[in-house]
């Protein structure tokens, strides 16, 4: 549990971080450290250089502008769970952040680190995807934005380049008559999601489903979007039976992950049960 030798630099500004990244090939960014440091201690990762961005204040905090939330990448899970703006406009993000690991992890771990690490059992990727979030990235050549749907490429792999910094996540503020729910089956040891279902339901004036979102953590290598289910729900009156039927008929996941604790087929079954429950809760919340 002792990491290999590495150099440590602290960046005080975003520009400094980008400069340091260019100077040191193979460098890794250190934010909350709750994913990186454990794998360094196991020597599964041996980055020669760490660039600590944890104190860059411009990257932390939640801002609401024009119907959107802009969440700095260093905003901790605890801050997300407690933020009035997040609870009001993106309650599913607060709900998910509050379920991550334990208080110590939530107090240090950040949304940017969580998304950039892209652990399939993390709680925030599916939520960000369900919300159609936009990832803000800064590199040597300036800023760029990537839709969440294009960000997660594979297991522990994202569109983020080695010399770039994930700076913020932009999420739409949920509107009136929109309900959401993050329902998680957690691993008893790690606390990671064996299956985390993120459901969003927007109701129209006639109580029918105007729009729905349904994504999963933990089931596949990257967060899984169950488009067929939500398409089947669009325009429907969301009775329990309608939701059950849509999930039963339209949720099929071909390439689930499995391990000694939970096999692939079992995770798919969990996704079915949890999506029904999460969609119903989201619907109830939209109605109230």
């Amino acid at each position: 549990m002792y990491p290999a030798r590495f150099e440590y630099y602290r960046a005080n500004t975003l520009q400094e971080a980008i400069h340091l990244l260019q100077q040191h090939s193979g460098a890794k960014l250190l934010a909350g450290g709750h994913s990186l440091i454990p794998i360094m201690k196991l020597r599964l990762a041996q980055p020669p250089v760490l660039i600590d961005i944890g104190r860059i204040s411009e990257l932390s905090g939640v801002m609401k502008t024009d119907g959107r939330l802009r969440i700095g990448s260093l905003t901790t899970h605890a801050m997300l769970a407690a933020s009035e703006a997040v609870k009001k406009h993106c309650p599913i993000l607060a709900e998910a952040a509050g379920q991550i690991a334990d208080p110590a992890v939530r107090n240090k771990g950040t949304i940017g680190g969580n998304l950039a690490h892209a652990d399939p059992g993390s709680d925030l990727p599916a939520v960000t995807l369900a919300l159609d979030g936009v990832i803000h990235i800064t590199g040597r050549d300036g800023d760029r934005q990537v839709n969440a749907s294009d960000f997660f490429l594979d297991l522990l792999t994202t569109d983020l380049k080695p010399e770039e910094v994930l700076t913020a996540v932009e999420l739409p503020a949920l509107e009136e008559r929109t309900g959401s729910c993050y329902l998680k089956f957690e691993h008893p040891a790690s606390g990671y999601a064996v299956c985390g279902a993120a459901a969003i339901v927007a109701l129209g004036g006639d109580e029918s489903c105007e729009r729905a979102g349904l994504c999963f953590n933990g089931v596949t290598a990257t967060p899984y979007r169950a488009s067929a289910v939500t398409e089947a729900l669009a325009g429907q009156n969301l009775e329990d039976a309608t939701i059950d039927q849509a999930v039963t008929e339209h949720l099929s996941i071909d390439d689930p992950m499995g391990d000694t604790y939970a096999s692939g087929p079992y995770r798919v079954e969990l996704a079915k049960v949890y999506s029904k429950r999460a969609l119903k809760t989201a619907r109830d919340r939209a109605r109230s």
Binding site: P38, L42, D102, H187, P188, A189, S190, T260, Y261
Partner: peptide
């Protein structure tokens, strides 16, 4: 040993 780390080997926590 597949459950050699506390990531895999589940000791009880209060909320469980």
């Amino acid at each position: 040993l597949l459950t050699g780390e506390l990531l895999d080997y589940a000791v009880p926590k209060p909320h469980m």
